[in-house]
C-alpha cells in the first residue's frame, strides 16, 4: 500500500509545474483568453516534450505511460489554466484508443500523440453535441451518446459551428455528426471512464490553484486592522476548500490507479472521482471568489478564470448528479447480487 508517486512521477510533476509557472503566467493566460486564441507557442513546446502522447501506446507513437502520469499533467495544466488544447485532445485519444477500431486508432492516434492532430470529445444527444470543448480547432471529433454508442469522425465529416463558452481559455463548438465517420465498435465505457478521470484530475488542479490564490490573498488583505484570513468565517471557508480538494484528489488518484491496475473497479472509481471533482470544482472556485471579496468579482483578479474552467469541466461528460445516478445503479446491482448469493 503506497499512496505516493514514484520518483519518475514526481519528476514529471515537478518538471510540468516549473515549465508552466514560467510559460503560462497569469498575464499570458489572460492575454490569450481575452483574444480568444490558443497559446500556439506553448502548445508547440508541450508537443516537443511529448505531452499529448503521454498515455498513448508506443505502437501508436505515444510514450506509453500510464493514466497516473496523464493525470499529473492534467492537474498541472488545470492549475495553470494554460490556454492549450491538451485536455480535449487527450480525451479524444483516450476514447479512440480504448473504444475505436484498429483502423481508427492507426489513422488518428499518431497525429494526436505528436500534437499535429487535435482531437475533441463531446456528449451528443441524437447526433448533436451542444458544447464540445476544443471542438472548433479539432481535426478529429469523438461523439458519445448516453446509450453507450459513439462515433469518431474527421472534422470535415461533421457540422462544426464555433461557439463562445464562458471559458475563453479554450475553444468550443456545437457539433452534429449526422451519419459521418465511423461508429465506435469497442467498449465505449472503457474509454469514457478513463476520460472522466482525466477531467477530474484537471479539476483537482483548478481547485488546488484556487485555494492557493485564496490563501495568499486572505493572508495579505487587511480589514479592521488584521488579515481577513485570521477571521474564522474566512479561515474555516479555506479549510472547507481544502477538504473538498483533498476529497477530489484522493478519488481521482484512486480512479487513475484502477484504470491501469484494477480495471474491474474503474466504472465505480471514475464515477466517484468525477462526482467529487465536479462538486469540488464548483464549490472551491466559488469560495475563492467570495473570499477575495469585491476584488474577486473583478475581471482583473484572475480567480474568475478558474471558476469558469471549473464550471465547464464540472458538466463535461456528465456532472456530479449523473455520476451519482450511475453510482446508485452500481450500488443497487450490488444489493441484488448479494441478495441472490
Amino acid at each position: 500500500m503506497d499512496f505516493g508517486f514514484t520518483d519518475d512521477q514526481r519528476d514529471i510533476q515537478r518538471t510540468a509545474r516549473d515549465l508552466l509557472s514560467e510559460r503560462a503566467k497569469p498575464e499570458r493566460v489572460r492575454e490569450h483568453a481575452e483574444s480568444g486564441r490558443s497559446d500556439s507557442e506553448l502548445w508547440r513546446e508541450l508537443c516537443e516534450l511529448g505531452w499529448p502522447g503521454i498515455a498513448v501506446s508506443e505502437e501508436y507513437g505515444g510514450q506509453g505511460l500510464g493514466r497516473i502520469e496523464l493525470s499529473i499533467l492534467c492537474e498541472e495544466l488545470g492549475r495553470s489554466l494554460a490556454p492549450v488544447p491538451f485536455l480535449a485532445s487527450v480525451l479524444a485519444a483516450t476514447v479512440i484508443e480504448h473504444s475505436a477500431s484498429e483502423a481508427a486508432r492507426e489513422r488518428w492516434l499518431p497525429g494526436i500523440a505528436s500534437g499535429e492532430t487535435l482531437g475533441a470529445l463531446g456528449v451528443a444527444v441524437d447526433g448533436t453535441a451542444e458544447l464540445v470543448v476544443g471542438g472548433a480547432e479539432a481535426q478529429v471529433i469523438v461523439l458519445v451518446e448516453d446509450d453507450g454508442t459513439g462515433r469518431v469522425l474527421a472534422a470535415e465529416e461533421a457540422e462544426v459551428e464555433k461557439i463562445a463558452s464562458i471559458d475563453p481559455t479554450r475553444t468550443a463548438a456545437r457539433v452534429s455528426a449526422g451519419d459521418g465517420g465511423e461508429a465506435l465498435d469497442g467498449d465505449v465505457a472503457a474509454g469514457v471512464d478513463r476520460a472522466l478521470v482525466a477531467v477530474s484530475s484537471e479539476l483537482v488542479g483548478v481547485c488546488d490553484r484556487a485555494l492557493e490564490m485564496t490563501v495568499a490573498y486572505v493572508k495579505e488583505r487587511k480589514q479592521f486592522g488584521v488579515p481577513v484570513g485570521a477571521y474564522q468565517a474566512v479561515s474555516h471557508r479555506c479549510a472547507q476548500m481544502l477538504l473538498e480538494t483533498e476529497k477530489a484528489r484522493s478519488t481521482a488518484a484512486f480512479a487513475a490507479w484502477t484504470a491501469d491496475a484494477d480495471p474491474e473497479r474503474l466504472a465505480e472509481a471514475a464515477a466517484m472521482a468525477k462526482a467529487a471533482a465536479s462538486d469540488a470544482g464548483r464549490e472551491v472556485t466559488a469560495s475563492a471568489i467570495q473570499a477575495h471579496g469585491g476584488i474577486g468579482f473583478t475581471w482583473e483578479a484572475d480567480v474568475h478564470w478558474l471558476y469558469k474552467r471549473a464550471q465547464l469541466d464540472a458538466v463535461l461528460l456528465g456532472g456530479a448528479g449523473s455520476q451519482r445516478a450511475r453510482l446508485a445503479g452500481i450500488l443497487a446491482d450490488r444489493v441484488r447480487a448479494s441478495a441472490a448469493a
Partner: peptide, 27 residues
C-alpha cells in the same frame, strides 16, 4: 433506492474518500 439514490451515492463517495484519505495519511 431510486428515490434516495443521489444521497446514498454521495455518502458512498464520502465513505470511500475517507478510506482513501486514511490510507494516504498512513503513506
Amino acid at each position: 433506492l431510486e428515490r434516495y439514490g443521489d444521497a446514498l451515492a454521495e455518502l458512498h463517495v464520502r465513505c470511500e474518500s475517507i478510506r482513501l484519505l486514511a490510507w494516504k495519511g498512513l503513506t
